[in-house]
Design a protein around this nucleic acid. Sequence first.
DNA 1: CAAACATGTTTGCGATACAAACATGATTCG
DNA 2: CGAATCATGTTTGTATCGCAAACATGTTTG
Lengths: 102, 102
Amino acid sequence: MKNVTVKKPPELNLLIHEPARLSIMATLAEVVAADFMFLAGITSLTRGNLSTHLNKLVDAGYVSETKEFVNQKPRSEYRITPEGRAAYQQYLADWARLTGRK
Amino acid sequence: MKNVTVKKPPELNLLIHEPARLSIMATLAEVVAADFMFLAGITSLTRGNLSTHLNKLVDAGYVSETKEFVNQKPRSEYRITPEGRAAYQQYLADWARLTGRK
DNA sequence: CAAACATGTTTGCGATACAAACATGATTCG
DNA sequence: CGAATCATGTTTGTATCGCAAACATGTTTG
């Protein structure tokens, strides 16, 4: 079998490319941690959609989640994982290449 | 009625954000014109999907299309329109802002 | 004239994002 | 005390959309 090198354009990681999640990842890449309501404010997402998008990122291993109670109220905190950061940076590079902004 | 200024994050133009179309727009932004098959090669899209995506961009007024016959064969040529270029540059700016790459 | 080539278009389906409804517990009000 | 409100998320229903595959149309070739 020949090793044919097909020059394919880098595909964008769709999990990150989606605007809502891109916004989340961009935020988490810049802070140590963020809680749910903070992210809701930053991203302008409804709680419902923020919840779903966050869960997808958690499932993918890009974001870690810790739930605790503060003042008897639930509080979820999110952080980007090393894999998440790597995937995010790869995405940035792929996007730049795709748009010619090498 | 009060003029409340809500600081909303810039929404990404989804027509352009979609990877296939982003690839098309990035290409058309750099060349004078491109025909169908050239774009198919550049973007690695199937002809079917390239056709649909191009038509969406044409419908939006971002791309212009001219069809002619060359050597008895159909040949479609595409160019970015001024509105298309403006929308593309706006998209680039919004994306940069969203990802913190101001 | 049948088969293959060239250039696109149309269609059917599976995935997904979003808004709206729901859940749960604490706090406040009448 | 019982009802309403707040705080923090989760679940669901629907409508859209991207993709692969099938189709269309005409040309060249054997």
